Simulated assay, not measured.
Amino acid sequence: MRIGKIDYLNLLPFEVFMKAFPVSLQTKAVMAYKKSYPSKLNRDFLFGRLDGGFLSSIMACGQGKIALPCGIIADGEVWSVLALPNPNKKDYQSASSNALIQVLGIEGEVLIGDRALIYKMSGGEGIDLGQRWKEKKGLPFVFGLFCVSKQKQRAEKIILKFAQAKVKIPQYILQKASQKSGVAKKDIVRYLEKIQYRIGCKEKRALEVFYRELLFHKIKKPKRF
C-alpha cells in the first residue's frame, strides 16, 4: 500500500506510531511512504500514484476517495497556518489554507507547515488562521483528512488506532526532528499539543461548515463528508 505522508512536524506522531504498530514484516515491506507537501500529495492521489494518505480537506471528498475518521485538526490557534501581509500571493503547498484565507476574508500571503512554525517561533507577526476560524465559527478546523482509494479495511484498522492513541515521541526522534526542521524541541512539543487527529461529531460539523462556505464563496464544489 502506497501511503502519502505530509512532511511536516504535525504528523511526527503518526510517523512514530507507524514505526511501532504491530504489523507483519511482510506488510511493512510492501508499505511505501512518500513524503511531500499537501498539494503535491493531492495530485499524486488523484493520478493513482498513492493508495492513501493525509490529503487537504478541500480535496478529501470526491470520486475514488474514502475519508476515514482521522485528520489534522486544530481547535483554535495552530501556529503553522498563517496569513502574512503580502496580498495576492498564495502558498503552493496547500489548497485548503489558500481557500480558508478567502473564506475568512483575509488579504495576505498564506504560509503553512514548518516554515510558518519557524516564522512564528522567531517572533514573526501574522494572523493565525486556525484561531480566526475558531473566533468566527466557534469550531475546530480540519486542515487534512486521511483518505484511501483501496484496502479500506486494513487502513481503517490502523488509522482508528492512531486517532485514539496518545503517542509519546522519544527524545532522540525529537532531537532529529529539531535538527531537520530548525524548530527547538520544546517548541515542537508545545506545537503538537495544539494538533488533534480524531474526527468526531464536532469535526464533521466543522467540515460541513467549511464546505458550505466554499460553495457560498464559489471557491469549489466539494461533495459531502
Rank of each mutant, 00 (worst) to 15 (best):
L11I: 04
K168L: 04
G71H: 05
I219Y: 09
K204C: 14
I72S: 14
R115C: 12
I127T: 10
A29Y: 13
Y8R: 11
P13V: 07
Y119K: 03
S36H: 11
K35V: 09
A99G: 12
E213A: 15
G52C: 09
S97G: 14
S56Y: 10
I188G: 00
G200W: 04
P69E: 11
E203D: 04
I3V: 09
G124M: 09
S122G: 09
V16Q: 02
D187H: 07
E109K: 14
A116S: 11
W133A: 04
L215I: 14
L41Y: 05
L12K: 06
R198C: 07
K161F: 03
K134Q: 13
Q153G: 11
G62I: 03
K34F: 15
A83T: 00
Y172C: 13
A83M: 01
L104N: 01
D128W: 06
F17E: 11
L145N: 02
K150C: 02
E15L: 08
I3C: 08
V81R: 09
L104R: 03
E107R: 01
L9V: 13
V110S: 01
Q151M: 11
A206L: 06
Y37M: 13
Q179F: 03
I73E: 04
D7E: 12
G108R: 02
S36E: 02
L139W: 04
G4V: 07
K134R: 15
V142L: 10
G62F: 07
V183F: 06
A163M: 04
I188Q: 01
Q179A: 12
N86A: 12
N98T: 00
K90N: 14
P87I: 07
I101Y: 03
L104G: 01
Q131C: 13
